[in-house]
């Protein structure tokens, strides 16, 4: 077989594509929001759940870690992760901000009354637009913010025991 330029080009292009296809078969195809990790939190103003005051980015202090938890009373997995949030509440280097997502005030308060309130700040996002700032995808979601207000982890879905341990470790570093 004679070797010529078009031959080499076409063969290598095709071989390259096939190799990429092979690699692609084993890749995770689900969407992940890791792109947001490492970025600083945007300015935000979100209303409190039970009064008309607003919570702003400037209200975040520089001596604590924050866990922003996005939840709703109609969301079943939120119920599942609730005990973990209740335990995290005891951790004093960490403050928990709850953003109540597309929910009714009454239902939300009933939920917290029944299962306990883990939140240091309870905020409400009635139309879901504020949560877009945190790249919300499907609730529950939790975002861990360090003392410089940088996002260091994002958890999609209910928190589990492993996530719980990760959070404790991250918060207690240094």
């Amino acid at each position: 077989m004679k070797i010529s330029f078009p031959k080499i080009i076409s063969i290598s292009l095709v071989a390259f594509s096939l190799i990429v296809f092979f690699l692609a078969l084993n890749i995770e195809k689900r969407y992940s929001t890791e792109k947001i990790v490492g970025k600083s939190v945007d300015n935000f103003e979100i209303k409190f759940l039970n009064n008309d005051e607003v919570f702003k980015k400037q209200d975040l202090t520089n001596d604590k870690y924050y866990l922003i938890n996005i939840w709703a009373s109609w969301c079943l997995p939120c119920r599942k992760e609730h005990p973990i949030l209740m335990t995290l509440k005891k951790e004093n280097k960490l403050k928990i901000i709850g953003i109540n997502f597309k929910d009714k005030k009454l239902n939300a308060n009933n939920f917290l009354g029944e299962l306990g309130n883990p939140y240091d700040f309870s905020l409400s996002d009635k139309d879901g637009t504020k949560s877009i700032l945190f790249g919300v995808y499907g609730i529950p979601e939790s975002i861990l913010i360090d003392k410089k207000h940088k996002i260091i982890r994002k958890f999609i879905g209910p928190l589990n025991v492993k996530d719980f341990e990760d959070i404790l470790q991250l918060v207690n570093e240094k």
Partner: peptide, 24 residues
């Protein structure tokens, strides 16, 4: 994934042999 793998192997063989035959 097994299906994808099978079609891909089949495809690769098909391309390989058609190249060989064509360049002959």
């Amino acid at each position: 994934p097994a299906r994808g793998m099978y079609i891909l192997i089949f495809l690769s063989l098909m391309i390989f042999f058609s190249f060989v035959i064509f360049f002959k």
